[in-house]
Write a protein that binds this DNA or RNA. Structure first.
Lengths: 334, 334
DNA sequence: TTGTAAGCGTTATCAC
DNA sequence: GTGATAACGCTTACAA
């Protein structure tokens, strides 16, 4: 392997001079610079970032820990992260936890050992067991998409509670009185906030709340199973509120198999849109979160931390959701 | 920052002994090992992989260079890569090139500087300008999804030519004679192979080929525009063959806006499925590639190279595509 | 404008 | 079983 030393020898200068040319730092005479550059080209020298990072204590690498890149919401977040990081000269390591804290911790340890400059974390559980690990190590971190309890940390997310309340109000305004929320797992803030928002909408309307919430996972399979349970209820509800896109699609499949028409026999609304580029005929009424912008904003804040810019105190950056009305929520009931 | 030295001092041993404990290498007396482990716990020591990698010449990091993680085909590939890599103790850096060779090269240089152990490359162009860069540096590489010209390299992909031929035959067997292929960009092997397969299907049927191929990008916008062009033709074609999923969806939107019913007035088939978890009502007839398995297999081969296992000569691993018949291809014409 | 010397935190090598 | 020493390839601090 060609090292900086080899280049220095070939160019007849000291190693540090080559370093200065490579990094465009400090003064180097034009003539010397050219000599060095020729030597670099001749030898095909590729700087070794490991050595540089060891000395400079910067890796120019960020990490994004999320639950599942396969969910288009997170795919889009990831793209926002990558673009923003790339613009700033950072590379990004991706980790899928599948909502498991054990995986989260495993990855975290590896990342800290790698001395990544910063971590973007979508915590598997709002307990956020792993946050202390990061902060104790002095690594910069921004939490994405979800709240965490009792933690001093920057967060970029949407107001799930408010958006869920709006979705709930929508269904109520359409005349539904028997609505069931197909929720995500307990202990995840987005799931809990969406439940709280739904509750608030019901409370505002003076409606009682019992047996109206099912707990599951943020997956299609879970949506399917929860919808099956709902269909066994009497009287049968007239509207479903899916806590995310996957749950909605799973629920729809269950309804379809039972021959229940959406929205005529069962209205359906959901959290998280599916990107228009993936959908032949947009159908779901959703509260859409600005996934790409979330990724961007989170990186922005993380870079501020790395550069000691921006406000010193921890911020909670709330991005707006958008209510998108489509066919699945149906018309006003008689 | 706590270093291995600090731990050594605290435990009253030499640094190398701590190293042996951390890495489970060499002999360490049980009593000493426990003393060291206690010191590690007390101090909250986190090993520094940079230093280790500098010495050991291994980073336990792979890189995946693809065109756009936002395309569900690549999202799934990425998940397959991440899972397989993670199982083997490797982390993965992701890079989006948006089909641009300049981006590909930029990322590549950064990755080589980072001394990643191996690179998974979906080359932007079949010229694969950047392959020599990698190989010259002695870094392991596996090419994914696409062919490259004149290169000694392992490739994991599907047989686009054959699958495209089958899709073409399908349309012909349904009685279509005026079919237009909405292709991807020239210079990309998947695009060219799909054209070749389509041509072969026509040739087999003894049908002439003129004005039957439009070139565009692998994007929804491009699909939309190409479909608009098709609709201006007389006589109007009766079937469209989209070279990927995004093109198909863009084309469908153009057709819909013009009030043209699919498949009654225009049949539509495409390459690449959309994952069922994302689709309310599967509709497109497609040639589906096993994206997850492609990612897995590619990592498998890459790890073989890193470990000097497996066949020495370069392999082309072809994975089977699956023809999935749905509504969009329509019935046999009168 | 250029160079010297030391050190970043680990592990390879060889010795005890 | 354990340790001393050097080295990985680069940059920081200081000197000339």
């Amino acid at each position: 392997m060609i090292t900086l030393q080899d280049v220095a020898k070939r160019a007849g200068v000291a190693p540090i001079t080559v370093s200065r040319v490579v990094n465009n730092s400090g003064y180097v005479a034009l003539e010397v610079r050219q000599r060095v550059q020729r030597a670099i080209a001749d030898l095909g020298y590729v700087p070794n970032t490991l050595a540089r990072s060891l000395r400079s204590r910067q890796t120019n690498t960020l990490a994004l820990i999320l639950t599942d890149i396969t969910n288009p919401f997170f795919t889009t977040v990831a793209r926002g992260v990558e673009d923003a990081a790339s613009d700033a000269g950072f590379m990004v390591i991706f980790c899928n936890t599948d909502e498991r804290e054990s995986e989260e911790e495993k990855y975290l340890r590896m990342l800290l050992q790698k001395r990544v400059d910063g971590i973007l974390l979508v915590p598997a559980r709002s307990g956020a067991h792993s946050l202390p690990l990061i902060q104790q190590q002095g690594t910069a971190v921004v939490v994405l998409d979800r709240r965490v309890e009792n933690a001093q940390v920057d967060v970029v997310r949407c107001d799930s509670e408010e958006a869920a309340c709006e979705l709930g109000r929508l269904l109520l305004s359409l005349g539904h009185t028997e609505i069931v929320l197909l929720a995500g797992p307990p202990g995840v803030s987005t799931s809990e906030d969406r439940i709280a928002g739904f509750r608030r909408a019901l409370a505002e309307a003076g409606m009682p709340l019992r047996g109206r919430i099912l707990h599951g996972e943020f997956t299609q399979e879970s949506g399917y199973m929860m919808a099956e349970q709902v269909l066994a209820l009497t009287p049968r509800p007239t509207a479903l509120f899916a806590a995310n896109n996957f749950i909605a699609i799973g629920a729809f499949k269950a309804l379809e198999e039972q021959g229940i028409r959406v929205p005529e026999e069962m209205a359906l609304v959901a959290f998280d849109d599916i990107p228009p580029s993936l959908v032949i005929a947009p159908f779901l009424t959703v509260a859409s979160q600005p996934a790409y912008a979330m990724g961007q904003k989170a990186v922005e804040r993380l870079l501020q931390r790395l550069r000691n810019e921006g406000p010193e105190e921890c911020q909670e950056i709330l991005l707006p959701t958008e209510l998108i009305l489509r066919r699945s929520s149906g018309e006003k009931r008689a």
